[in-house]
Nucleic acid binder design. Structure first.
Lengths: 336, 336
DNA sequence: CGGCCTCATGTAAGCGCTTACGGTAACCGC
DNA sequence: GCGGTTACCGTAAGCGCTTACATGAGGCCG
């Protein structure tokens, strides 16, 4: 508990002024080698570490970025967190994690708290907050980068995967295998990405000349449980489905589970494709065919974009859209 | 970007001193109702929000706690994060997340960075850092609460589940079903919890009068992949296994996968039990029998303990050991 | 050798807040 | 009407840093 040494202690011990210590420690200005050595020795002896708070007060930068996520229970988000954390750290930033539970109110509350905390910027994903409110923060000089979300506003940089393409890829794979009764369990429909994936699904169907059948789409929420329920509904409304595209891998898990429970074999009776390519998706029974999101790339791009913004660099290209890819495993096959 | 208003602006507008504004905002001291109203009006008009950094500099408290985790890819940790975040927020704290990749060096680096950042305290889980180094931080007045780890030091409060009991519960369940060739895929053996679960397994075997057979235990690392590999090894060394206890649900996923791949039915040919009770474990094929860790309770207890410590309250009881419970689903049955 | 430039360092202000201390006015009981 | 409270508020110091500006010592040139 002994009071931590301050820059004054170091200065006194090294026989210089605090300004010199500060300069030596931050590498600004020129320091005579002997002086530098004396300072380093003093730092060492005292076990001095600069107080970041005091520094932030004057520099107005905390070297901290925040990440706003609806929840962390989805392993895809977890992967994102991991990547972002890593890149942030390598740039000398720390990361504050905020989960919003998908409530717009909580999102705004957090954002304004973060600004008061002098956080340098935020990465936001799956936000429900209206784009203009987000843009408001940006206009006030609080850098924000959106992940995985369709905001129209040009003022907010965006990094996301092409969800529509992903939906199309998944559906085309199924069509190519010979399926014609292809169901879809959607994600939470108040999120733009869910609409996009659904649109990709519809597009692929249309392109193959297949009619859109509302009985073939069930609304989900990106969770295991909603995948389970979605398939039960699907099976009831359209017992002849031979394939289902789940809006994400987590709900595909529920799909697999419900199918097994109903006595259907995968892929013998019904093929399943997911979206995300979680690490665990290679280990489901059977291993899941899915659309891979380049989580690592998203994390890197977004983090570096945000850090650039906090340093005052211009945003440059505002929309970064990455390409998803199809990963074929064993949950899909030709229809019987 | 227009400079954010400071407490001086508010004071001037309200016609009082900054001291009064500060007192009014923090609820300290007595403020005449008209004065308070004037201040509130000024705050409102200016859109003032106190600068947390400046406050922290004088109060020496940031209302921030850190959470150190080996990685976030494990959904069990994700659940913990979620719970901790929630409780922290409800106490007015924000949470900094740090993933250490299981490297002791990174752990210490983080801890000392965090202290420099004036973080109020840390929750640490799965740390490899020697207990005495951790204790060093505590001795310096940096509150730390350990989760899920066996540190002997009395100075570090501990919240964890009884891992040995969990291992015993899992194994006893299998024994009760009539299994006698029970394998175990361990967790990372440099972590105390893995040893504990293994010890529980061995104890149960011994209590039932079954010989310990080294061919029945394979070393894993808590990952899907290590579960997969572990079972392959097990199947080779002891083809007559009829049940396996995986050290966590994630590796149980790999176990399930490897078993299916080798043509064995679960639970027909081999029973499987995991540990953690992830949300997704109810949706594996077949749904996984597992040992439930009370993640929500752990999160709450640990967070409140830590926040208490940061407020200078004494630790009280130092070791909090919670009880795991058996959740029976469909991956276990009597041997054929 | 005087003027000028460069290098190294010190002085001191100030970031936006909290809070110990002191002061004033109103109010109490006697 | 006076000492003593009590309620409210202002003054000013100071948290631990960074940095604009000033200063002084050499070095170099003509």
């Amino acid at each position: 508990m002994s009071a931590r040494p301050t820059i004054y202690d170091v200065a006194r011990l090294a026989g210089v002024s605090t300004a010199t210590v500060s300069r030596a420690l931050n590498g600004t200005g020129q320091i005579a080698p002997p002086t530098r050595a004396a300072i380093e020795a003093a730092v060492e002896q005292l076990g001095y570490r600069a107080n970041t708070i005091a520094r932030s007060l004057v520099t107005k930068s905390t070297q901290t970025i925040a990440l706003l996520l609806p929840d962390i229970a989805n392993p895809f988000y977890a992967a994102l967190v991991s990547g972002i954390q890593q890149h942030a750290l390598s740039h000398g930033y720390t990361m504050l994690l905020c989960t919003t539970e998908g409530e717009a109110e909580r999102e705004e509350q957090y954002l304004s708290l973060l600004r008061a905390q002098q956080v340098d910027g935020a990465l936001v994903d799956g936000l429900r907050l209206p784009p203009d409110r987000i843009a408001g923060f940006v206009r006030d000089g609080f850098p924000i980068v959106c992940l995985d979300r369709d905001v129209d506003s040009d003022s907010i940089p965006l990094v996301q995967v092409d969800n529509r393409l992903g939906g199309r890829l998944a559906t085309e794979h199924l069509i190519g295998l010979g399926h014609s009764r292809i169901g879809h369990v959607t994600g939470a429909l108040d999120l733009g990405i869910s609409e996009e994936r659904l649109a990709g699904y519809s597009e692929a169907l249309a392109a193959a000349g297949m009619p859109a059948d509302p009985r073939l789409v069930a609304e989900g929420r990106f969770t295991e449980e909603s995948g389970y329920e979605g398939v039960r509904a699907l099976l009831e409304a359209a017992p002849d489905v031979t394939a289902v595209f789940a809006a994400n891998d987590l709900s595909a898990l529920g799909v697999l589970n419900a199918l097994a429970e109903s006595g259907r074999r995968v892929p013998g009776d019904v093929s399943v494709v997911g979206f995300d390519d979680l690490r665990l998706s290679a280990f489901t029974t059977p291993p899941l065919t899915t659309i891979k999101q380049p989580a690592a790339e998203i994390a890197q791009l977004a983090t570096e974009l945000l850090i650039g913004l906090t340093r005052g660099e211009p945003a440059g290209k505002v929309r970064h859209v990455l390409e998803p890819t199809l990963v074929v495993r064993e949950s899909t096959a030709e229809p019987a």
